[in-house]
């Protein structure tokens, strides 16, 4: 039988060990990142199954929107690192336009992401239209920050991403040396992402 003091020590030790393990597992999970949608980088860096239904998030590249027959529309989605062609046949949300962040649901078919649902992801900036016009090329518009790669954490795909020519730089002008993710952590993604600006 343990003494009262020993019992208390054992209880505190159990609490500390349990919470420490919680923190370890939690942080490991966060380093790997969990998400509602994937970015083009995630999908290009992974062998995604053919019939896998995914959500793909990114910015509609400026100059990439081509309207086809009826409601069909083709455009390119980019996360400031890599980009993917998207095809969609249906009604677009009001906010859909070039430079807008969107989340599409669909499957990869022969290198094209065929979407059956497109949702617009508006940013957290609110301003009157006149002000927005004067800020057109300044910071704070169409940030890549909301589109952080889930797999960009590991160093290997990141170096590929930076050297990849699949991200057309002309449309995604970023301030010097800030393309790509500085760190694996979420904070790094946000800070770096804020500097990458797409002029519309």
């Amino acid at each position: 039988m343990m003494s009262k003091r020993q019992k208390r020590m054992a209880a505190v030790a159990a609490l500390v060990v349990g919470l420490a393990l919680t923190a370890v597992f939690g942080f490991t999970a966060f380093r790997k990142n969990m998400m509602y949608f994937y970015t083009p980088t995630d999908i290009l860096d992974h062998q995604v199954a053919d019939d896998a239904r995914l959500r793909l998030g990114g910015l509609v590249m400026v100059g990439s929107v081509k309207r086809g027959d009826g409601l069909q529309v083709d455009f390119t989605l980019s996360d400031c690192e890599k980009s993917l062609p998207v095809r969609y046949d249906g009604i677009l949300p009001d906010l859909f336009k070039e430079g807008q962040g969107i989340v599409a649901t669909g499957t990869m078919q022969n290198g094209v992401f065929v979407a059956d649902e497109v949702l617009a992801k508006h940013d957290e900036n609110y301003m009157p239209p006149e002000l927005a016009k004067s800020l057109k090329t300044a910071d704070g518009k169409h940030s890549c920050a909301p589109f952080k790669s889930a797999t960009g954490v590991s160093p290997a795909p990141r170096s590929q991403a930076v050297s990849s020519s699949s991200a057309p730089r002309s449309a995604l002008r970023a301030r010097e040396g800030t393309v790509g993710r500085a760190d694996g952590d979420v904070k790094g993604g946000v800070i770096v992402g804020r500097d990458a600006v797409v002029p519309s």
């Binding site: 349990g18 919470l19 393990l21 919680t22 923190a23 370890v24 597992f25 939690g26 490991t28 999970a29 790997k32 990142n33 969990m34 994937y38 995630d42 992974h46 062998q47 995604v48 199954a49 896998a52 239904r53 995914l54 889930a150 797999t151």
Partner: peptide, 19 residues
């Protein structure tokens, strides 16, 4: 099932279990 990494949600489950 989609060919993506499944370890992150499993680590989350482990964290919830420990808690």
């Amino acid at each position: 099932g989609q060919g993506l990494d499944a370890s992150a949600p499993l680590y989350f489950l482990a964290a919830i279990l420990m808690f």
